[in-house]
Design a protein around this nucleic acid. Structure first.
Lengths: 183, 183
DNA sequence: CTCAATTATTTTAAGCTTAAAATATCTCTC
DNA sequence: GAGAGATATTTTAAGCTTAAAATAATTGAG
């Protein structure tokens, strides 16, 4: 099959052959790498600037950012889900933030398993200051994009998000159905 | 100034006032959060599937992926730059991969400070198997995007990457400006 | 009510990650 | 060819992160 055909560049005989049975995911892989590069690039800068100017770590800032949007406080489980990190991770972060006096935790009313975490006054004040600079940094980082670029990215990343969640749902046994006849 | 003006919703006097001196970065912040969500979502799934099916961590897979593209091997410094992680991080990862027999390291010819890292036969074989599934997973994850979506995302994320690097260059005083090379 | 399953959190062990300091080698200039 | 500065890597300390097991409280079915 095609043994005399010369290599004609990216789309070689091998690649075509491979596509008969499975699929080629070259474009998707390149997209994934670029997405990862972008995120890593921005994340590293934010981390390093937060440390340099405020002596705070990015995960602590992220946790405080969640709390700032929740005046009633959040449980550790809420934080874990919103931040998309493990429960044990949140336990440790909250511990250290309590130590710093930036958040407090108290028993949740009505459920003795849960604790409610809140920003302290000190924490709220510190966060506002950091958030102001953080916003400027993000603005600077995306300076090269115009409004239309941002809109388009929001839309397509939304699509990607939905697609990735669908893949996740397909692979997770999903919850409590012992007799899911059709997956 | 404006002391009798009532609060009229999201765009308050405070927000407008703030915009006189500085800028508002609401759209950019939302974009950053969405970018981060997408990356985290995909990264978590890849990490968990790599662990479940191959008992390997994502950083080890990433390091092997770099080596696979470099038949001549890479120094630790090369790996650190390409993977965008610290040098000390690479030291530890290589150590553990050598332990597993997946890579080897030997003195770099001509520079006694450096070491060249290469995939072993075992490592190359293991990587190829993992890479095959990994490609499928990424393909599945971006299943909801068509070709045009992917092209547009590549283009706009490229723009974002350039913009973020520019911000970085502006803040780093010392740089020999070698980072625009991408292989 | 009672017990099994679920949910919330903590603990543990292993590994990842960074920044900064330390070591060793190299390169370039005089 | 010596010494200053640059580069490659390792070490260290602290903190982040996960998966899995353990603990504790809640819920729901019978």
């Amino acid at each position: 099959m095609g043994e005399t055909m010369p290599d004609t560049g990216p789309m070689t005989v091998d690649a075509e052959t491979r596509m008969q049975g499975g699929e080629d995911h070259r474009a998707e892989l390149r997209l994934w790498l670029r997405l990862l590069t972008c995120t890593t690039l921005i994340e590293s800068q934010i981390r390093s600037r937060l440390r340099a100017r405020f002596d705070v770590t990015l995960p602590r800032f992220d946790l405080m950012a969640q709390l700032e949007k929740a005046p009633e406080g959040m449980t550790l489980g809420d934080l874990s889900r919103r931040m998309m990190v493990s429960a044990g991770n949140v336990t440790g972060l909250v511990e250290r933030l309590v130590q710093d006096g930036l958040v407090d935790r108290r028993p949740a009313p009505g459920d003795r398993r849960s604790a409610l975490v809140n920003l302290t006054d000190k924490g709220r004040k510190a966060f506002e200051e950091m958030a102001h600079d953080h916003g400027d940094w993000i603005g600077e980082m995306f300076d090269g994009l115009d409004e239309a670029d941002i809109d388009t990215l929001m839309r397509l990343l939304g699509k990607a998000k939905t697609s990735a969640r669908a893949a996740q749902a397909r692979v997770l046994p999903t919850s409590t159905d012992k007799d899911d006849a059709h997956g």
